[in-house]
Write a protein that binds this DNA or RNA. Structure first.
Lengths: 345, 345
DNA sequence: CGGCCCGGTGAGAGCGCTCTCGAATCGTGA
DNA sequence: TCACGATTCGAGAGCGCTCTCACCGGGCCG
């Protein structure tokens, strides 16, 4: 219990099974090329001794770790207010454990942490990395690329340099936004506004693009930049009502923003959806189902994104068991979104 | 970039600095007992070569991994709908990285996973574990104890067996509940009800105990068991109104439940807080600030809980740098809660 | 019937690091 | 001045594992 009984080694297993260490090793790693009776004997010895391979010794020679890092770079507390990463983590975790890989979590905040993470990844402690880095000016992708660690990004990284080599998994922010706005238009709304997210994040920028795809060149006053927070949503909605008292629909860049907007609308006596229809983005149920009225929103399958990220990475690492892609490096994936109709639009 | 340049070894550093591998090792690990000029030379060599110690080789001999597992055992999706674990993880992460420890995340769902986790921990891949296991009947604590891995629990584990040896960090659920109920009483409420959480979780049970501490032996119909979800809160509130139409205050076991209750109250035309005062628990801002009216609730410092868990574990692992506890195994810690007054009570 | 090939097995060389131990160096007190 | 203790450094033995390579035996072809 408390005192650490010395763990049995491969040597011990071999001795007990009456074979060499080499043969024992072969059996432990699949048993190819070992005749049945011996396989059985080794297996039994493993069982009886409760042998578990020493991972450190193993990776010392194989140079593999069967571990991948998940880097979540978010200076802002905001992120933790939504279950986004939690769900993504769950998807990642499922896929990784299904292929016997460990998940090393790296949370960063602040610039100094970037260096630390870069050093860690460059240190070769993990076979690859899954990185969430949503800001345009983030130095992390560069550091990681420099470190030469196989990486898959969560969300399209907004690199300025020309290389399109980055593999990422993203949801169809632009398409989802289009669908939302089209829905508002189909409802007969004509003064449709958009409260954006921080435009240095590709997801926010893409949603704005989708909005513009449908609306064309509209009064720029109908687009208000915000920051993905409820408070920001409130501010933006207030400004919107000042500039355009006749607004009859709002597409908010995420659910939190929409919740803030809803509150201001109620406070100003506007009925939702009768006077103003509102659509959010994300489908964070804890928020979208709690608003008054419940929020119509664009859902993205967050857990699936995580699973996919892990799968792409493992494939790239040449992990057996993962169905092989056609050839070489797998390419990025963009997942579809769906409109979830509740009461607000 | 793609091809893995062979990482420099200690041997290389030693050669470049003109010292032995042993001395280079000493410098890398603090440099005690090495004279200044040599220290400087080795440091420079490390710098120039970009040397990073091979962790696998190191732990092969030290039998330490400088890594701890974080086990989150939650079959239910519910958990991921709140930022509870995210915040806790952040606290844990901060403390661990401050002491150069890695965080290996183990997410489980379903019984079979338990065995996997047990095997992993027993496999000696990590130095210790931080475990969130909130259910009374959870086999995990037993498995872990059996594996002999130093562990700190998040939340008081509800063990039936007699051993009080488990170290845990919890918030003062009972005290917080008392404060909430006293607040309601101070408001002049007399028909105070409680919507509980799942009573197989110690946090829910403790909150109920706190409620009883203040209310004494009341009409059992004023206590309704629920499940920490908004939908459950709605159901419970409905039942409550049927049985006790005269209820004038509700203490909900968490914010999500309170949100559900609020919705039912509004739907039934009860004004909050005029007719019925409502208090939640947790202070999940994303929820508590969004409800109508904003929710009065009991806050627990979740991030601090995480940080503390990590600190206790590191101390127990004899990690230098962590201020030493007085003697031996540190004991559990219960963190205070605070009442956050918003509009609902 | 002999040589050859081939699948199955074991011996042994490291992987990169820490740590013990003895050698070398330096100072100090008598 | 010389012995002796303290300090600093290097040589070398592993930690537990994988993997190459040589070895051995039996089946098959010539």
């Amino acid at each position: 219990m408390t005192d650490t009984a010395p763990r049995p080694t491969l040597e011990a297993v071999a001795a007990r099974a009456g074979v060499s260490r080499a043969t024992a090793s072969r059996v432990v790693n699949g048993g190819d090329g070992v005749r049945e009776p011996l396989v059985a004997r080794v297996r039994r010895a493993v069982e009886e001794l409760g042998y578990v391979p020493n991972q450190a010794a193993r990776s010392l020679v194989t140079k593999r770790h069967d571990a991948v890092a998940v880097v979540i770079a978010e200076p802002e507390t905001r992120v933790f207010a939504d279950p986004f990463f939690a769900l993504q983590l769950r998807g990642i975790s499922k896929e990784l454990t299904a292929h016997d890989n460990q998940l090393v979590l790296l949370l960063t905040e602040g610039r100094d942490d970037h260096a630390r993470v870069g050093r860690y990844l460059a240190g070769g402690h993990v076979d690859g990395a899954l990185v969430f880095s949503l800001h345009l000016d983030d130095p992390l992708p560069g550091l990681i690329h420099h470190a030469g660690v196989p990486t898959v990004f969560g969300g399209r990284p907004g690199w300025s340099d020309g290389r399109g080599g980055a593999v990422y998994v993203d949801s169809d922010n632009r398409g989802g936004a289009r669908e939302a706005v089209r829905h508002l238009a189909a409802l007969g709304r004509t003064r449709i506004a958009h409260i954006t997210g921080p435009l240095d994040q590709t997801s926010a920028a893409d949603r704005l693009d989708g909005f513009r795809d449908v609306m064309g060149d509209i009064d720029p006053g109908l687009v208000v930049e915000s920051d993905f927070t409820p408070a920001g949503g409130e501010r933006a909605m207030r400004r919107l009502l000042e500039r355009h008292p006749d607004v009859d629909a709002v597409f908010a860049a995420n659910d939190l923003t929409a919740a803030g907007a809803l509150r201001v609308l109620r406070e100003r006596g506007r009925r939702v959806p009768e006077d103003v229809a509102v659509i959010g983005f994300d489908d964070m149920v804890a928020v979208a189902e709690q608003t008054d009225p419940p929020l119509t929103t664009v859902r993205q399958d967050i857990e699936e994104m995580g699973r996919l990220m892990a799968r792409l990475l493992l494939r790239r690492l040449g992990n057996k068991g993962v169905e092989a892609g056609r050839t070489g490096t797998p390419s990025s994936v963009v997942l579809p979104t769906t409109l979830v109709r509740r009461a607000s639009a």
